[in-house]
Design a protein around this nucleic acid. Structure first.
Lengths: 343, 343
DNA sequence: TTGTAGGCGTTATCAG
DNA sequence: CTGATAACGCCTACAA
């Protein structure tokens, strides 16, 4: 490996000058610049990113924390693929690198440590849940002023940096849609409430019912954990009250898919399905039979925005601030699954 | 931020001793160790990963290169999600970090530069294609002896480090299955041949025909690019020869899904579909109507193996070598889509 | 068992 | 415009 020293010698200049040329800093004579560049290329010199990071005290990495259970995707791969793509785009734009960090769902994570050990310059946290250790860890992050951003999760009562989506509104529209179709009894298969978006959806659901003067019936509430399996498991309960049910709203597509599968295995014909609305508008929503009406969430955009918020800080001098919680819009995509069955 | 010097002072030892304690190296008196640990904790000291990497000349990063087109997934997200999960598992096991690097599909990449600039200690390359610049870049990697590994791509005539799957065998079995069902005229919607697995599939296809004494008919060959869109686009050609077709083998599930969609829009009823076999056995294969018979590929395992091959090198002293090309098995998963229609 | 000191490859400051 | 030179935080012989 060619060293900088060799480059300097070959170009007949000092190492400092080599550095200047390669970093485009300070005034340099054209001729000198040319010679250095030439020598550098001839020798195949590559500056050490390690040394550079060290002296600049910047890793050049944007960290992305995501929950991880081997062979089990708690969320849809769709969600992560979209968010990561969005982040990837921004990262490449700003010349950063993307450091992926998995964490076991239980294991509370020392977010601040990532910064203190200088592994990352900024960090995006996915799949965060509202449990006390998590709150505590995030508070530290906030207090110590590290650049971080949560995606798709809100912590009530804090002012964390968050990019979220209008889940309450999305759910509201989903239920309105069902009601407009004539549904009266609408079940709700939600996820656990430690995800703020589950809470948001519940609010939207209740608001829509209230608007229409429909009663809220706790009997109609089901809980899953966003996995296909949990949707599958819910099928028996739905089956039990099938006759009294007009429709069911499911908090993500995966569960909706599991539910449909489960119902089918219990012998329910497609025509006898209650109207179903899913959530996320993942690729899979187009493939189910019947195609799944679902609430579209701009995950790609959310990832991109989060990354930009973080990386832009480094660029301009603005100490950011501004709305710590930004919310992007959702949108109902109607397909066939939300039709009410004939009576 | 507490510095190591402070820790040393508080513990009443030298910085070197602090270092020793924190790295568990060299003989240390229990009492000293205790004091250092205590001081370190009290002060909230975090060693700088940057400085550490610098002096050790190891980034601690496993790089993963993946092709990238914003908002377009040339491959299925399924493929990447599985491979990444596998890599993630190994990485966490070995205490490495995972550095994601996107590259535009055209842009030929300076793989060796990643090592020379010391951004990564080892590197996995996904979505590589057999084009001359790529070969050249990989040869350099090989010659310079950097630890790298290709996944799901083989370069004939080279001895690159590769983790591949038995695509020839997988295709062979897929076609045998169709033939066993009575299919005589089997079309093949393949991907471009700069992906070695396209070539492998073609070989499997031809071999199966030959075995059965069936002729190879170039008319039955279609080419897509692994996107759903290209499968969709192929529908019209398939439609044109629908009557003379018993079955069609499609090189990945995405295209198969696009194809089914396209046929349907052309007015073909499910019952009139030719028998269809897809490839990858992605989640989506279970969701299509009819469910898609497909060839299962152990992507998760492939990612894990590749990462382990790379990271284990660092651990033991073995300069690896051993079979540079390792191939994992594929397996046909039969579902309803491969039934021949009634005549 | 512990301390001292040199060096890792860059950047940045300060003279010239 | 360019050349010395001092950090940066940590690891690791070598000495004690």
């Amino acid at each position: 490996m060619a060293t900088r020293k060799e480059v300097a010698e070959r170009a007949g200049v000092s190492e400092a000058t080599v550095s200047r040329v390669l970093n485009n800093v300070g005034p340099i004579r054209e001729e000198t610049k040319r010679r250095v560049l030439e020598a550098s290329k001839a020798l195949g010199y590559y500056p050490s990113a390690l040394a550079r990071s060290f002296v600049r005290r910047k890793s050049g990495n944007l960290g992305v924390v995501l929950p991880y259970v081997p062979k089990v995707n708690v969320f849809s791969t769709y969600y992560f693929a979209e968010v990561l793509s969005g982040i990837g785009e921004a990262v490449r734009e700003y010349g950063y690198d993307l450091l992926l960090m998995f964490r076991s769902p239980q294991e509370s994570m020392d977010f601040a440590g990532l910064f203190k050990s200088q592994k990352v310059d900024a960090c995006i946290i996915l799949g965060s849940r509202d449990v006390s250790e998590e709150r505590a860890a995030l508070r530290i992050l906030q207090e110590e002023g590290h650049p971080y951003c949560l995606i798709n999760q809100h912590f009530e009562g804090e002012s964390f940096s968050e990019i979220d989506a209008e889940h309450k509104q999305g759910s509201l529209e989903a239920i309105r849609h069902l009601i407009a179709l004539g549904a009266k009894r609408i079940a709700f298969l939600n996820g656990t409430l430690d995800f703020s978006n589950s809470v948001d959806r519940l609010e939207g659901y209740r608001k829509a019912l209230a608007e229409a003067g429909l009663p809220f019936d706790p009997q109609l509430m089901l809980e899953g954990n966003y996995s296909r399996k949990s949707g599958y498991a819910a099928a028996s309960r739905v089956y039990a009250m099938l006759d009294s049910l007009d429709a069911i709203f499911v908090a993500n597509d995966r569960m909706a898919i599991g539910l449909m599968q489960g119902l089918r295995e219990l012998g329910v014909q497609t025509d006898d399905f209650p109207a179903i609305v899913g959530y996320d508008d993942s690729d899979a929503a187009r493939l189910t039979d019947p195609p799944l009406t679902s609430v579209h969430v701009p995950f790609y955009e959310m990832g991109k925005r989060a990354a930009k918020r973080l990386l832009a800080q480094g660029t301009d001098g603005s100490d950011d601030e501004g709305a710590p919680r930004e919310m992007l819009g959702t949108r109902l995509v109607v397909r066939k699954s939300s039709r009410l069955r004939e009576t």
